[in-house]
Each structure stands twice: as C-alpha cells, then as structure tokens.
Design a protein around this nucleic acid. Sequence first.
DNA 1: AGCATCACCTGGCTGC
DNA 2: TGCAGCCAGGTGATGC
Length: 273
Amino acid sequence: METVRLGLERTVVGRRVTGVSVTGTRTVRRQSRFELRSRLTGRRIEAARRKGKFLALLLDDSQVLSIHLRMSGQLLHVTEPGKVAKAPHTHVIARLDDGSELRFVDPRTFGEWWVTADVRADGLPAVFDRLGPDPLNDGIPPKLLAARLAGHRSALKAALTDQRVVAGIGNLYADEICWRAAVRPDRRCDDLAPDELRRLSRSTMAVLKAAVEQRGSSLRDARYRDLMGNAGSYQARHEVYDRAGEPCSRCGEPVQKVRFGARTAYCCESCQH
DNA sequence: AGCATCACCTGGCTGC
DNA sequence: TGCAGCCAGGTGATGC
C-alpha cells in the first residue's frame, strides 16, 4: 500500500478530477454512486496519505477520497487512456485534468471507494481513528508494541494482523516478522519476554522497510501491482511465506505450513520459539 | 468485552 | 484432459 501511495503522489496529486465513472455495483457501497461522483467531480487532489492499508486522497475542499484495495483491488494510472484497453473487472474510472485516468480493477469486488467530509485535524477520515499506530508512519518501538499487545491473550500473529492493534501488517508480513524475530506466530501475546518484544519491534520495522524498498510483494496467485502495472520484488526475499518444505535460511530445517485457526502460517518450528 | 468464526468474491490450483 | 471443489486473504458482522 505504501508503494501504491508513492505512485499516487507522483501521478495524481495536483490533478483535478474532471469526471468519474462507477460501473461496478459493489465498489461504492457506503454511499450512492451518484453521491461519490458529485462529491469527487471538480475537486483537486491535494495529497496522498495512508494509514495501515487504507489510502486517503485529500481533496481541495477538505473532503477525503478513501480507498481500500482489500484482497484483489488494483489502482492503475493510465496516461493515454485511448491506447490502453479497459481491463476486465474495472469498476471505477476517475478522469483527470491532464487527460490521464485512475482506474480501479478488482475481480473479487472486496475493495472500496468512498468520499467523506468527516475529517480530523490531520486531514484523515474519522473512521481511521480505530486503527492502531502505523509502523512506517510512526515507528513501533518496543515499549509501544508491548503496550499495544498488552491485555491480549490471543496468538501473536492474530494480534499483529489486527489493524486495531497495529495498522498495516497483513498475513504474509506477519509471518516474515515472526520468522525474523525468531518467535513462533502462535505464541500468546501476554507471554512474550522483553527481549522477544524488542526483536519483534526491530523485525517489524526491518521487514516493512525492506518490502517498501522492493516495491512490495507480488504473489503467484494474487495480483498486486504498482500504479504503473509493475510487479514488486520483495517476494524473492520471503524467508518463510509460501516456502513450505524449503530449508530455513537460518537453521536449514524445512519451513512448515501450519494450520492456525481458520488460516495458515508459515514458520520454522525449529528456530522460532 | 474479548476472542473466534464466518461472509463477502473470483480465479487459480489441486486432485480425482 | 476435464471439471468440481478448495483455497487465498482483509475487514466487518455475527456468534459464543
């Protein structure tokens, strides 16, 4: 999401929206399509912000266009719309005053666009308040991480991916963070030693920063691409995610895919404790 | 209140 | 080879 935000900053910030087409029936669901279109049309995009996995495009009249890609959403910036065919599952197109388009493609239709005026002093929508601190924006020092995990009896991975606890960590990055910290993802939050919390704090920052430097992770069966349609390259650095059976780079034992509630986690049961 | 599970979807992959 | 069915994962609703 940070890679997408950086792309938005380079391409659509400073542009004015000249028109909006909403063709999908699910992408805009917090308000009517008509309302989104009328709130957005004519507005200039002043800034591209992000909290966790939520994007916020700040508009010139203090409204905000919030976008969440969920599982399969993709934002594409098309500079010459006439030359680029509309991809299947294109649900929203925003036309901009330089002739370019911001297109939203989302096969599974979980993704969402909405425009609100209920913004806080920092310019972000009030609904973002329920999100925990964003490590890339605000850092996550050991004391803060410990405070965020305090009182939780659930498993570490469940808390790390709970956006109210910490914002921005998804399934694959949670696995990578736990591996790097050498802590099992199914450890209880209230059972972590100070040194383990320090390692988790450092690992969170290291994994997220490296992932952004590599412009994200593009998986076999997912469709993450940046605004230009380019794949990320962090998947080549994954130590455990989707690497079941391959030797752990730290201890050589095979990486495991373990059942974990209704989901799965990849980890090294030999060197994560 | 807090934790677990399910629903929402489609496409790619697995296994018969 | 064909195809039915499983699985992927983020969030919000529902259940316990």
